[in-house]
Amino acid sequence: MGLFVYSLDIIVFIGIFAIVALSLNLEYGFTGLGNFGKVAFFLAGAYTYAILMERTGIPFYLALIMAMLVSAGIGYLVSLPALRLREDYLAIVTLAIGEVLRLVVKTEDSIAHGVWGITVPPAIHWSGMSVLEMRMVNIGLVYFCLILCFIFFQLMTRSPYGRVLRAIREDEVAAEALGKNRVKYKAQVFMLGSALAGLGGGLYAQYMQYINPYMFLPMVTFTVWIMVIVGGPANNWGVLLGAGLVILFERGARIIKDYLLLPIDPINLQYILFGVLVIFLLAYRPQGLLKERQLETKAIEGVQKWKNRSSE
């Protein structure tokens, strides 16, 4: 029983982080935007949700939508100064906003009790609810959102809009020459990515029922990046796989810490291994475990046929 309930916890976490990883995949994998402050939008969503649930009586789904809107708004503001410039400026600005937002919620006690953190009432609750039931409800909620997000991302990235994003990733100037306003597209992607990271944050706050600023350290951003890089940038299935593998690995390290005596703390070792793994993946398999699938359009089919005919 204990093991079963624990594994449900892992399943919820995989679902939440899969949503965040999918949103990074849209930004980095499909559009080529390096967002190194994913945690900022995760934090914005989590705190928006927590504050709304604590102070107002609005239903939880409205709070989740508000969390997405607030994150999207912050994403838009962050993208303004940096998107017109080179990609490294965006990296620095996003990295910085993660630190600054955490500083604000840590320092301003009036926002959400600073370092003491904020408790979040559960979204769906009835008297006599057991831990098992609570987790089952969360799995339902998180995976409902995840499936919607996944279908949305799959449809979007295969649509003409998604092809424009890939074109911008491959060659900004060429995309611009075809009349695609790259700054507008990038800003839209950044807002959408931030909104979904905010959704992940809201779900995280609702599941944890308590959040404090120390839950939003830069390692959250790094963890999400590993999920995308391991799984396969620009492949949504790969990112789901990556999210699952990384969370399982993390939990494994925690379990090992309790049962095995190693000369090195397994949690430290885990991050060291993650770092080494990322460097090797970037060198030897930057496309990740599952490769990006080739576009399937009538035009490409036509080109293939023409190529085959001309080679005969």
Partner: peptide, 21 residues
């Protein structure tokens, strides 16, 4: 460039956690 930046963050984590350990 993005790969190099991600690589530098990864390297940073390796060094930071070795120091922490």
């Amino acid at each position: 460039k993005i790969h190099l930046m991600v690589g530098s963050i990864a390297l940073g984590f390796v060094i930071r956690y070795i120091i922490g350990d």
